[in-house]
């Protein structure tokens, strides 16, 4: 019985047959449009977003690699005591500050701090928002009411005032800022995730999972959550822009990263006395440009991702 197909095959050259099959398979797999392929194609069409992404990757890589090569003591990078408040030159491409520190090197070190704070606080916000949104959307009823009232409450307090207050009473440090920004910016994520859970929890695949006795926690994390990846990615990207901006604001106001440790926000702040603006404008110009550029490209990436991931989005 087992040798019938073999005898049938011997009538033609077995080699060409296999090759044909492989070629057909190859052609098929090339034509198959997996969701991620569609998304990638749509994202690549968004020229500005692609350029922004390339720039952002380059920026992050440069900052993290370069900063690891600089001396650990951030206060004393390449101090040039003979050239304090020096304008940009070949030796100091972004000039020096009043202590003679090289502004470019401080920007690299400050960039690592600012980006680290941005990334970690977004991670906290995403995790918190996902948990709250998933629980509210999945269980509904009293749980939903309670959690969403909490969201409303958080949204009723002026964000920047809350962050500054918390940083002031906790004592400002990098870790405080990460936590404070994280626990004050998860509400948008929670709303998005909740809305997605509300529409997904009555779908057939969830019903099927429930009917064979899958646990609630597994349904939430293994069955529904993966379907909310798209809005999560967009929220995380736009959240990163927001977090970098918030860190800059808080540090600018004096409740974020404390000098002499540089961050882009406190660098603008320390260059912002009227006399400094007059005599050494590069001290606030370059870190300001870095913040703006970073936020701008991350916003562009987020915009491109939103267009690529959500075919119905308009804005």
């Amino acid at each position: 019985m087992s040798d019938t197909p073999a005898t049938a095959k011997t009538t033609t050259d077995p080699g060409t047959d296999v090759r044909d099959q492989l070629r057909a398979q190859d052609a098929m797999s090339r034509d198959v449009q997996t969701p991620w392929k569609i998304i990638r194609r749509r994202f690549l069409k968004h020229k500005l977003a692609v350029v922004s992404l390339a720039f952002f990757i380059l920026l992050v890589a440069t900052i993290f690699i370069w900063s690891s090569l600089l001396p650990a003591n951030a206060a004393q990078v390449n101090v040039d005591l003979y050239n304090t408040n020096a304008p940009p030159s070949l030796r100091h491409p972004m000039g020096t500050d009043q202590a003679g520190s090289d502004v470019l090197q401080r920007i690299v070190l400050g960039g690592r701090v600012s980006l680290t704070i941005g990334l970690f606080s977004v991670a906290i916000a995403i995790i918190l928002g996902t948990i709250v949104g998933a629980l509210a959307g999945y269980y509904g009823g009293a749980v939903d009411n309670l959690l969403m009232s909490f969201v409303d409450m958080m949204l009723s307090v002026p964000l920047l005032l809350l962050i500054v207050t918390l940083a002031a009473v906790l004592g400002p440090s990098v870790r405080t800022i990460i936590i404070v920004i994280g626990i004050t910016s998860w509400m948008g994520v929670a709303r998005i995730i909740r809305a997605n859970f509300l529409s997904l929890k009555n779908k057939e695949f969830v019903e099927a999972a429930r009917s064979i006795g899958v646990k609630n926690s597994k349904i939430i994390f293994k069955h529904i959550l993966p379907n909310t990846t798209a809005p999560l990615i967009v929220a995380a990207t736009l959240g990163l822009a927001e977090a970098v901006l918030l860190e800059a604001y808080v540090s600018f106001l004096g409740y974020g990263v404390q000098p002499p440790q540089p961050s882009w926000g406190n660098m603008v702040s320390s260059g912002s006395f009227l006399l400094t603006i007059q005599e050494a404008p590069w001290m606030m110009l370059f870190p300001g440009i870095m913040i703006t550029l970073t936020v701008l490209v991350v916003n562009f990436i987020g915009d491109g991702l939103r267009d690529a991931l959500d075919p119905f989005s308009r804005l």
């Binding site: 912002s272 009227l274 603006i277 404008p281 300001g288 703006t292």
Partner: peptide
């Protein structure tokens, strides 16, 4: 661009241009 510009940076740019 303006949406990505930190308020304080725009403020200082204006001071730099119009005051200094």
């Amino acid at each position: 661009l303006f949406y990505s510009l930190p308020v304080f940076f725009l403020g200082f740019l204006l001071i730099y241009l119009f005051s200094v």
